[in-house]
Design a protein around this nucleic acid. Structure first.
Length: 287
DNA sequence: CTCATTTGACCTCC
DNA sequence: GGAGGTCAAATGAG
């Protein structure tokens, strides 16, 4: 594996399919860019609002913004997929099918522990962020590895609900080597693998296929902000990190596509809740 | 006691 | 064979 900073999409790259690139690529790119910027903004705002009771409201509004753009991206992806089905002679795809179905499956069934395979590069998404843990998801660390020629170790996380709900989403977090200067904020390369098929603590279905009515009351909702790290190299922005927060506002993400909230059919039943909360806070602006 | 993290071993892929 | 990814026992925190 070489470098995670290149842009990735869960499906094959738009650049592989000129028709798609011309029809949908720029639109998806712009939507995804907006999504990524919103995610970055959320990562900056939410830590600063931790002690504020509006935190939950703000978090939910961010979530809804991301849901909207996710829907748009998914629509474009679905259109693209129908075109993509015809293009099955992709070399990587052929290689993946042959190695997965034939060569390795026998060994995997013979010994369950031999199931872990090196990840494929076609379902990963990378981004650079100063706040690798405030991504709206809950993660459990399952490994850490020193990477060759890297100053900092790479941490491996999987979805907290991987066992309970079989969610296969994982991510790796690695501090960038060049972010050691005093003026530059510490930056991390976060690489997401797979998509969430679980429901997070908000009761929001984060999978791609399930659509289930969310009847959970607002009082039952809990924040699902990921605060998972105890890793000494994985710094988090705290309320006191104002310098970092200020500088982070200028950061431009390099991700094309934010996988965290790629739930195209998540029920957006929060409008009433939002309006109610907004009215409440307008009446009580300093609470 | 429970659960998350750490860490060395082991695995697959290149 | 080296590098990257995952497992699982050990460890520690709450």
């Amino acid at each position: 594996m070489k470098h995670h900073n290149s842009r990735h999409l869960p499906q094959s790259s738009p650049s592989d399919h000129p028709s798609f690139a011309s029809d949908h690529g720029s639109a998806m790119k712009e939507i995804a860019r907006g999504q990524s910027l919103v995610t970055q903004l959320r990562a900056i705002v939410l830590p600063a609002l931790q002690a504020d009771q509006r935190c939950e409201l703000v978090a939910q509004m961010f979530q809804n913004i991301l849901d909207c753009s996710s829907k748009a991206i998914t629509e474009l992806q679905l259109q693209h997929q129908s075109d993509d089905d015809a293009l099955v002679d992709d070399k990587k795809r052929v290689r993946r099918i042959s190695s997965d179905d034939c060569t390795k499956e026998e060994g995997a069934t013979a010994n369950p522990r031999h199931q872990h395979k090196r990840r494929r590069s076609d379902d990963l998404v990378s981004l650079e962020t100063p706040v690798p843990h405030y991504d709206g998801r809950q993660w459990r660390k399952y490994g850490q590895k020193h990477i060759n020629k890297a100053k900092h170790p790479r941490s491996y996380y999987r979805c907290t609900y991987s066992k309970e709900q079989g969610c296969k989403a994982t991510k790796t977090v690695q501090q960038q080597d060049e972010s050691t200067g005093t003026d530059n904020p510490v930056m991390y390369t976060v690489v997401y693998h797979g998509q969430h098929t679980c429901k997070d603590n908000n009761g929001v279905d984060s999978g791609t296929d399930e659509s289930e009515t969310n009847t959970q009351s607002s009082s039952d909702r809990r924040s699902s902000i990921s605060i998972t790290s105890t890793d000494p190299c994985d710094h988090q922005i705290s309320l006191g990190d104002n310098k970092l927060i200020g500088k982070s506002a200028d950061l431009v993400t390099k991700s094309l596509y934010e996988p965290l909230n790629m739930n195209p059919f998540a029920p957006l039943d929060l409008d009433c809740w939002e309006l109610d909360a907004l009215l409440r806070f307008q009446l009580e602006p300093d609470n």
